[in-house]
Amino acid sequence: MSAMPLDRIALISDVHGNLTALEAVLADISGRGIERIFNLGDYVGKGPRGQAVVDRCREVCEVNLLGNWDDFLPDPGRTEDREGLRWWKNELREEQWRWLRGLPFCHDFVLSGRQVRLFHASSTSVHRRVRFDHSEAEYLGMFENTPATGDGPVPTMVGYADTHDPFFEEDLGRTLFNTGSVGNSLGDPTPVYVILEGVLDSTEPAPLSVQFVRVPYDAHAELAVARELGMPELDAYESEIIHGLYRTNFYSGTPDGYHR
Rank of each mutant, 00 (worst) to 15 (best):
V15T: 15
L40V: 14
N68W: 10
S123E: 08
I37C: 08
T203F: 08
Q51W: 03
L66M: 00
V194L: 03
M142L: 12
R117Y: 04
H107Y: 06
E91G: 03
G45W: 07
F132E: 13
D165H: 08
R32D: 07
P216S: 09
E94F: 10
R101Q: 15
H164V: 09
M4I: 12
I29T: 07
D75F: 08
G67I: 14
R128D: 10
R56N: 08
W88T: 09
E136P: 10
V199P: 02
E59C: 13
L103T: 03
G230H: 07
L6V: 03
G173F: 09
D81F: 11
E94A: 06
D188I: 14
T124W: 05
S13K: 07
H164I: 06
I12P: 03
A161F: 01
E240K: 04
N18M: 01
Y237H: 04
T163W: 11
E83V: 07
L40A: 07
G33Y: 13
L19K: 05
V213D: 04
A137I: 09
V25D: 00
H120Y: 13
R114F: 11
V53Y: 01
A27P: 00
L140D: 05
V210A: 02
E233N: 13
L11R: 09
M231G: 08
V194W: 10
L200A: 15
P232Y: 04
S202F: 02
G84K: 00
V63T: 12
T175A: 12
G257M: 02
F177E: 02
R129M: 15
T175Q: 05
D81P: 12
L19H: 04
Y258W: 12
F177A: 04
G17A: 13
N64L: 06
K46Q: 10
M1K: 12
E62G: 10
E80Q: 13
P153E: 03
G33M: 00
S209L: 12
D81L: 09
F212P: 03
L118I: 08
F167D: 05
R114H: 07
D14I: 06
H259K: 02
H107S: 05
E35I: 10
V130T: 08
L200P: 08
G150Y: 00
E23P: 09
R214S: 14
H127C: 13
E170S: 13
T163A: 10
E83M: 01
T146C: 07
Q115I: 06
E169N: 15
Y43K: 12
P205T: 04
P166E: 02
D71H: 06
S202T: 09
R8A: 11
K46T: 09
P255D: 08
G41H: 05
V130H: 03
L100P: 06
D108E: 12
D218K: 11
R114K: 09
E197G: 03
H243R: 11
P205E: 03
G84C: 11
D28E: 14
W99A: 04
